[in-house]
C-alpha cells in the first residue's frame, strides 16, 4: 500500500456499492489503492450517522454501512455512502500531507520548544 498515490476526487460515488444483507450498504475498496487507516478515520468521522463494519477480504477492504438512526431511508443512506467515500479520499489526502510534512513538522516543534522554557 503506497501513500504516494496521486489523489483524485471520487466522482462516481456509486461504483463498487451494493445492498448488503439486512439494511446495510456494502462498499468494496481496492486495498492497493485505499489505506485501512484512512477507512477507519472516515468511519469515525461519520459515526454520528453510520456504523461501519470493516473487513479485509483478499485484496479488498469490505465496508458495510449501517444507518445509526432508525427510519433512515435508502436515499439518505446513498448520500451517506457518497460522503463516506469522499471522506476516505480526504483521509488519504490528510495522510499524504502528514507524511510529506513530518520532517519539517518535527523541526518546527524542536525550534518551538527549545526556547519555550516549558521542558525544564
Amino acid at each position: 500500500m503506497s501513500h504516494m498515490v496521486r489523489i483524485h476526487r471520487i466522482t462516481a460515488a456509486g461504483k463498487g456499492a451494493e445492498m448488503a444483507e439486512g439494511n446495510g450498504l456494502s462498499v468494496t475498496l481496492d486495498a492497493q489503492v485505499y489505506d485501512l487507516w484512512a477507512v477507519h478515520q472516515a468511519a469515525y468521522r461519520l459515526s454520528d450517522r453510520l456504523a461501519i463494519q470493516v473487513a479485509i477480504e483478499g485484496s479488498t477492504i469490505q465496508c458495510t454501512l449501517y444507518p445509526v438512526t432508525e427510519g433512515t431511508n435508502s436515499d439518505s443512506l446513498l448520500v451517506a455512502r457518497a460522503d463516506f467515500l469522499r471522506e476516505v479520499t480526504d483521509q488519504m489526502l490528510r495522510a499524504r500531507i502528514r507524511e510529506v510534512t513530518e520532517p519539517v513538522r518535527n523541526l518546527i516543534l524542536a525550534y518551538t520548544f527549545s526556547r519555550s522554557g516549558l521542558q525544564k
Binding site: 469522499r86 480526504d90 489526502l93 490528510r94 500531507i97 502528514r98 510529506v100 510534512t101 519539517v104 518546527i108
Partner: peptide, 10 residues
C-alpha cells in the same frame, strides 16, 4: 516548493 504542515476541512 515544500509543503509545510497543515490541516484541512471541507
Amino acid at each position: 516548493y515544500e509543503l509545510l504542515p497543515f490541516r484541512f476541512e471541507r
